[in-house]
């Protein structure tokens, strides 16, 4: 597999949210606006790259039976580091994302990639895989956030273009499910067309 295809497969072919359906909790919980979705996506990407690279380094030394617990501890450490950094330098974004930042630990994508890819590949490839998966995740979150923001509050990336309220349900909980459903349908159509 070429280096480029390792990165790009995460964006369309194996998109973690729209195809593999991993990490749905932050997807639904944080996408009330495009900015929030993007922030969450980038925080997860940072954790993915760091943990993938580190795990591929140590995978050979870990006894098989304690593999998962060891990976989780490593991931939890990186998540807490990202959390501190966000708290220090992006306090307002941290405040909006709240609980979902520490919960990156239990995002299935991170552990899933550690287990399925990083433990079997070299450091560079694992880092690239983390980058690709992270970008795929970020794209999906940003798109979902954008759709919900446009429909729900009549603005895009915080710039209002409609006076008054949008279709409120889309910023509320039910809208998250419905918007994701429709995006998935469109994505599947698009994917089956190109292949």
């Amino acid at each position: 597999m070429s280096k480029l295809s390792i990165v790009t497969k995460g964006i369309i072919k194996e998109n973690p949210i729209l195809v593999l359906l991993l990490g749905t909790c932050p997807t639904l919980g944080t996408t009330t606006s495009a900015i929030n979705g993007m922030g969450m996506g980038l925080a997860t990407t940072a954790v993915l790259i760091l943990s993938n690279m580190f795990i591929s380094m140590i995978a050979g030394y870990i006894p098989a039976k304690v593999r998962i617990p060891s990976y989780i501890v490593v991931i939890a450490a990186f998540v807490t580091i990202v959390q501190f950094i966000m708290q220090a330098y992006m306090p307002s974004l941290y405040a909006t994302l709240g609980l979902f930042i520490p919960l990156i630990v239990v995002n299935c994508i991170v552990l899933g990639r550690a287990e399925a890819f990083a433990s079997k590949n070299n450091v560079l490839d694992s880092g690239l895989d983390g980058l690709g998966m992270g970008l795929g995740f970020t794209c999906a979150l940003t798109v979902l956030g954008l759709v919900r923001e446009i429909l729900g509050s009549g603005s895009a990336f915080g710039h209002k273009f409609i006076d008054g309220d949008g279709i409120l349900i889309f910023v509320l909980a039910p809208g998250a499910f419905i918007a994701l459903a429709y995006i998935m349908v469109l994505f599947n159509k698009f994917k089956s067309k190109i292949s």
């Binding site: 870990i62 006894p63 304690v66 593999r67």
Partner: peptide, 11 residues
Amino acid sequence: MAKESNFKNMT
């Protein structure tokens, strides 16, 4: 590849 697991190396 991953090593044999025994109590000592797991701990």
